[in-house]
Every structure is written in structure tokens, then in C-alpha cells.
């Protein structure tokens, strides 16, 4: 398993360059079971059971993830049951999350549902994150 934040040492992409991230898309009719590993962006409209490693993850309104997400930026508008390890996390108003969100910065929109904990961590925590910690709900 590669280190989740292999790109973190590099400068974060600027707004203009961010568009150049290779974007993958899982459609509404798609179900993935297993590990997804990308250096770009991943948009989930469908369902994922397992682990996601990405530079940037967007869990869209009807998307559903069951498992852990490791990314630099995470935006959630769908359903998540599991943990998030990300520097920047955004919960949209349609988000329905239960689990833990390990974050450095977090934004929660009005209307978002969240059950669990949101532990803050310094950026160095995410850089050194080779193996995900065991947490019990």
C-alpha cells in the first residue's frame, strides 16, 4: 500500500492547475468493492465499499461510501459510513456521515448530518500517515 500522502510534500495545486488533475468518475449505477487508489480526483456518484486513496475526493449527492477515505481534500454531499483522513474536509448540506473525520480544516454546511467525532490533527499528522490507526466507534 503506497503512502496515502505521497503528493503532500509537493506544493498543493493552484486553483487553475487543479483542473488538470486527472478526474475519475464512478456513475450512479456503479458499485465498487475494494481499494481505489488515484493521484487525481475521484467523483463518486455510485457506491463504494472499501478504501479510497485520492488527491481529492468528491462524494456526490447520491453517492455512498462504506469505508475509509484518505485524501488531501474531501467534499461530501452523499452518504458516508466510515472514516475520513483529510487536510480539508467539506460537508455539504446533503451530506449524511457517520464515523470520524480526521481533519485539519473542516467546513460543515447547514443541513448536513453528522454523527461521530471530528478530531483535529496538525498537517504533519497526515504527512506521516502511512498506516491508518485503529479506531473503535
Amino acid at each position: 500500500m503506497p503512502a496515502p500522502f505521497r503528493n503532500l510534500s509537493k506544493q498543493p495545486p493552484r486553483a487553475g492547475e487543479a483542473e488538470a488533475l486527472p478526474t475519475s468518475q464512478l456513475g450512479t449505477a456503479t458499485t465498487v468493492t475494494g481499494v481505489l487508489d488515484t493521484e487525481g480526483e475521484l467523483q463518486v456518484h455510485g457506491s463504494v465499499v472499501g478504501r479510497i486513496n485520492a488527491e481529492r475526493l468528491v462524494l456526490c449527492r447520491h453517492g455512498h461510501v462504506e469505508g475509509d477515505i484518505v485524501a488531501r481534500d474531501v467534499r461530501i454531499g452523499g452518504r458516508l459510513n466510515g472514516r475520513v483522513f483529510a487536510l480539508n474536509v467539506t460537508l455539504d448540506d446533503t451530506a449524511d456521515v457517520s464515523g470520524r473525520i480526521f481533519h485539519n480544516t473542516v467546513t460543515v454546511a447547514r443541513g448536513a448530518r453528522f454523527e461521530g467525532r471530528m478530531p483535529w490533527r496538525p498537517p504533519s499528522y497526515f504527512e506521516a500517515l502511512d498506516q491508518l490507526p485503529e479506531t473503535r466507534p
Binding site: S24, A29, V35, D37, T38
Partner: peptide
């Protein structure tokens, strides 16, 4: 929301991928 899935060149999936679309 798009039903079609696109796995870009930077994405690696270990596991099962199922869809009722393309």
C-alpha cells in the same frame, strides 16, 4: 448525475467493479 463511469489513467482499483451502465 452521470450513470457512466470513467476510470482515469491515474486511478487504480483493486477489487470488483460492477455497473448497470457503461
Amino acid at each position: 448525475a452521470p450513470a457512466v463511469s470513467h476510470i482515469s489513467k491515474a486511478l487504480k482499483i483493486t477489487g470488483q467493479l460492477e455497473s448497470t451502465e457503461d
